[in-house]
């Protein structure tokens, strides 16, 4: 538990907590960005530079902007004061989340002595990643390409105006 780890963990968890508790949805999106940046720092600390920078590019660069756009597009007719920001059965949700964390934390703490120990930092070059993607993982790569194409087309079709309505 180095001080750097504690600070980054504090940032990430505070950002995550703010993202799901704040009242203003734009503030929630900004807090989500803080949490995602903290996770990117975690990835960099874990010697996964490629994933860390991919996280910054994809999540902070694209997903956060997408979330902000969706919030601003759907904000116009918000019935703000109709029963608060949480659903009617929020207590059950909180209890379920606390129970899930209790089970996960118990499992982690019980298995802590058996977990793998610190090893030398692996040096991952982009060349190695490319070779792995084009060799052993070429089939998942193709499937992800297909998935991204269909998600692109699907998102456009779902969000598109239908004939006759609106416009």
């Amino acid at each position: 538990m180095t001080p750097v780890f504690c600070i980054v963990a504090l940032f990430t968890l505070a950002g995550g907590l703010a993202a799901v508790t704040l009242k203003n949805t734009v503030h929630c999106a900004l807090a989500l960005t803080v949490a995602l940046a903290g996770l990117a720092l975690f990835f960099l600390r874990l010697d996964a530079q490629f994933v860390g920078f991919a996280q910054i590019l994809i999540y902070i660069g694209a997903v956060a902007i997408l979330v902000v756009f969706a919030i601003l597009l759907t904000r116009s007719s918000e019935p703000e004061a109709s029963g608060g920001i949480v659903s009617s059965r929020w207590l059950a949700g909180v209890i379920i989340a606390a129970a899930v964390f209790a089970v996960l934390g118990w499992a982690i703490l019980r298995s802590a002595p058996a977990l793998a120990h610190e090893s030398a930092a692996p040096a991952v070059t982009v060349h190695q990643i490319g070779t792995a993607l084009m060799g052993r993982y070429v089939l998942p790569l193709e499937i992800v390409a297909l998935l991204l194409t269909s998600a692109l087309i699907g998102a456009v079709i779902v969000a598109m105006h239908e004939n006759g309505s609106a416009k």
């Binding site: 990430t12 995550g16 059950a92 949700g93 934390g105």
Partner: peptide, 17 residues
């Protein structure tokens, strides 16, 4: 940290309107 973040996300997904 990952477990706590997962629980926070789960609580948000289950409780927000």
């Amino acid at each position: 940290v990952a477990a706590l973040l997962f629980a926070i996300g789960l609580a948000g997904a289950l409780t927000r309107r």
